[in-house]
């Protein structure tokens, strides 16, 4: 059972608090040129699914971006009873396109920045390849092991939305709860010190902030969520997403249009001239709400996970629904890439 009060006494507490850990890592990457984005304000199963990763790795434009992302995995919920597992955990996600040649070295420096003296630890990069079949995405890389603890997933993205990436992106995903528990040497995630009041030295633990949520959402995910409503939601979101994709294809997909768009795009961007009619087409393409369609995909994905946690998906349905979501996600990625290529730029 987790304790609600921190085991460490405030005076003895020297390691980084959870929020300091977050601030340090964000500060570290900001100093190395990353844009700090906010967590995406929707349910995602992993930081990778945020459009800041999933869509931004597409296409040639360089990016350097970092953000924390609460990630929800309904089936992993343990009613707050398991000291090592959470329904919702926090990732710090760093995306670098193209990855700098010394990306591993920079990463190791980030560990120093959070107080890990590398010479006093055992660090290994062990093969671990990442794959998200529903997103048509995979990469190769490592899990970074610190004294036997997996603290980071390090991936060189190779494909996304079924498309080869060029240039590729380097993705660094820190598991913040694990790292905090390691730094603070606590045995339960719920004992992690989230913050210490600088004046009163009062300690606020992870448990105080999050235990109720873990408990209640485990109950919701496993017991209370209304299965027929979930199916209904899934159907509605899917329908809307599919309608958007269909419209996109109708208006912009066929090759002749694509070619025309590219010509228009070239003229606008490179020559700065376009007829008003051409400009209209470009604007229409650019304002097409593909990002909205992606949000609908995220909704579907989360609903699928909820249904799965409820044990409401049969074998046949499972395969079929996953295939449908995959089609949507990959369809959005392709549309997004086409949109950026043909109508991107100012």
């Amino acid at each position: 059972m987790p304790t609600l009060t921190a085991s460490s006494t405030p005076a003895a507490f020297k390691a980084l608090t959870f929020q300091e850990l977050l601030l340090r890592l964000q500060g570290f990457w900001a100093e190395r040129g990353c844009v700090l984005a906010q967590p995406y304000d929707m349910e995602v199963g992993a930081g990778t699914m945020s459009p800041d990763t999933f869509l931004r790795v597409l296409g040639p434009d360089p990016i350097a971006i970092a953000y924390t992302q609460p990630s929800r995995r309904p089936a992993d919920g343990r009613y707050g009873e398991n000291p090592n597992r959470l329904y919702k955990h926090t990732q710090l996600q760093v995306i670098l396109k193209p990855p700098p040649v010394d990306i591993q070295q920079i990463y190791l420096e980030s560990l120093e920045a959070i107080g890990i003296r590398l010479r006093e630890h055992d660090i290994k990069f062990e093969e671990d390849n990442w794959e998200w079949p529903v997103g048509g995405a995979w990469g190769v890389g490592w899990q970074v092991m610190l004294d036997g603890l997996e603290i980071t997933q390090f991936t060189y993205f190779q494909q996304c939305g079924g498309m080869d990436l060029d240039p590729i992106s380097g993705e660094i995903t820190y598991g913040l709860e694990r790292i905090a528990a390691f730094l603070q040497d606590v045995n339960s995630i719920y004992d992690i010190v989230w913050a210490v009041d600088p004046k009163t030295r009062r300690v606020v633990t992870y448990g105080e902030i999050r235990l109720e949520e873990e408990l209640q959402l485990s109950v919701y995910n496993f017991e209370a969520a209304d299965v027929s409503k979930l199916w209904e939601h899934l159907r509605l979101y899917e329908g809307e997403c599919q309608a958007l994709l269909d419209e996109f294809h109708r208006n912009f997909k066929d090759e002749k249009t694509a070619e025309r768009h590219e010509k228009i795009h070239d003229r606008v961007v490179h020559d700065g001239v376009a007829t008003p009619a051409e400009e209209d087409v470009r604007v229409a393409l650019r304002r097409f709400p593909i990002l909205g369609a992606y949000e609908l995909c995220l909704k579907c994905s989360h609903l699928f996970n909820l249904l799965d946690a409820r044990g409401a998906i049969s074998v046949t349905e499972r395969v079929a629904v996953m295939a449908r979501i995959r089609n949507m996600v990959v369809g959005v990625a392709k549309a997004y890439a086409a949109q950026r290529q043909r109508a991107g730029g100012r």
Binding site: R119, E120, H121, D122, I123, L146, D147, G148, L149, D185
Partner: peptide, 18 residues
């Protein structure tokens, strides 16, 4: 993948045990 000095080995052992 290291040969830690005395201070380090306790930390590392403790980490692996955790």
């Amino acid at each position: 993948n290291t040969r830690p000095e005395e201070t380090g080995i306790e930390t590392i052992r403790h980490g692996h045990e955790r």
